[in-house]
Design a protein around this nucleic acid. Structure first.
Lengths: 110, 110
DNA sequence: AAACAATATGCTAATATAGAAATATCTAAA
DNA sequence: TTTAGATATTTCTATATTAGCATATTGTTT
């Protein structure tokens, strides 16, 4: 462990934890298209407003999203363009896995 | 939710879960340098062999690592180059966050 | 086959997390 | 300042996850 800074890895793990929930990934993808209010996200996710608010709090605490108030609404957006890019990488990795499984399946049939 | 495929996002979330632990992130970084046995990783991580084996099982089940047996040892390696790149992105996001906090702190002092 | 080395798996306790429901807080407008 | 709309927070329950310990499995060697 001497070669690795555990504290740094813990921070990275905390960041990854925010990505480790399907609903939050959808929220992130929505926010990539632009600002959204809590209510809008709740409608898209088909989740109670309180649950969405909780997810947004998680994302906020880890600095993944930022928000501004406009009237009675809170407008959320991604705090860093790179977050979207990271999600794209995860998407690619998943596609690679699916492709590999497909090839394996075909070999087994042949 | 109609616009979003929940099953796909669940798979992505599962993948991200494997990154959501500091020890596993260290394992991944070790494996980026090349193949490692369970024992080697246990020494680096200063964790009991059984715990490392469990972590490797998690990574294996999500297709993040692959392994081959050589003698009594099991040699693990990353199953996809892109996994390392994804970790780099997370690293960058974290550095961005730290930089932003630094700038904020400086503004507050001034 | 027996003994040994390396790895994997079951089980448990402690901790963390998501969702639900109720309630509190904040903002705009009357 | 009262009311209504939008968002945030608290509490509770069910579920999941990690580490530790003991034990099982697998492969090698004699």
């Amino acid at each position: 462990m001497t070669r690795h800074n555990l504290e740094l890895y813990s921070l990275k793990a905390e960041l990854c934890k925010t990505f480790a929930d399907p609903k939050r990934l959808i929220i992130i993808d929505e926010l990539r298209q632009g600002e959204r209010t809590v209510g809008e996200l709740a409608r898209v996710l088909e989740l109670p407003q309180a649950v969405v608010s909780r997810h947004l709090a998680v994302l906020r605490e880890r600095g993944v999203v930022k928000h501004r108030r406009g009237g009675t609404s809170a407008y959320y957006s991604l705090s860093d363009q790179k977050i979207g890019e990271a999600c794209d990488m995860v998407h690619q990795i998943l596609l690679d896995q699916i492709e590999k499984n497909k090839q394996l399946a075909e070999r087994l049939v042949a």
